[in-house]
């Protein structure tokens, strides 16, 4: 079962499914396209038993990426609205920052909410552990455990390609 065959057989329903999910023709077309692109890049078993389920898994991941990018962009714009113009970074700088934040957001989603909150306060706001402990209503030991867990995830993400 090659990618071309998969494309011919499945592009049409995948596209209409995405269009229903995203309410947008162009985005649905993009993500449908990216789904098959991933198949080309990523090796997969040639005797795919459930091609529909397989394609949906990939497409769903891309939809989540798309949402995350949108949500992050929105939250970022909201925050930037309160910043004086003379210290606003250039569009290019903002793109770079958003890409970094996107990677962090992907990581954060794998963390438990409290671990995530502790990590954000410690690493991005540089709050002392004692303050975080008080804020979360847990012991400093627990905060240290949370941060250790989050940093280990960061580490794995950073060196995952080795």
């Amino acid at each position: 079962m090659n990618t071309e065959y998969l494309y011919v057989q499945h592009h049409s329903w995948l596209f209409s499914w995405l269009r229903r999910k995203l309410d947008c023709h162009a985005q649905a077309a993009d993500i449908a396209h990216d789904t098959f692109l991933k198949l080309l890049i990523k090796p997969y078993s040639k005797d795919l038993q459930e091609p529909r389920a397989f394609l949906l898994t990939i497409a769903r991941g891309l939809v989540v990426d798309h949402w995350r990018r949108e949500d992050l962009h929105h939250a970022w714009q909201e925050a930037m609205a309160g910043i004086p113009e003379d210290i606003t970074p250039s569009v290019e700088q903002q793109q770079i920052l958003l890409a970094t934040l996107q990677a962090i957001a992907r990581l954060l989603e794998t963390l438990k909410p409290r671990v995530r909150e502790a990590f954000l306060l410690a690493q991005l706001e540089d709050k002392p552990y004692a303050d975080i402990a008080r804020y979360l209503g847990v012991s400093i030991r627990t905060v240290e455990r949370y941060i250790a867990e989050a940093l280990y995830q960061c580490y794995q993400l950073r060196f995952s390609d080795e």
């Binding site: 995350r68 949500d71 992050l72 929105h74 939250a75 970022w76 909201e78 925050a79 934040l101 962090i104 957001a105 954060l108 989603e109 995530r116 909150e117 954000l120 306060l121 991005l124 706001e125």
Partner: peptide, 10 residues
């Protein structure tokens, strides 16, 4: 507030 941006996104 980066952490706020991230929390809102999450």
């Amino acid at each position: 507030q980066v952490s706020q941006v991230m929390q809102n996104t999450m």
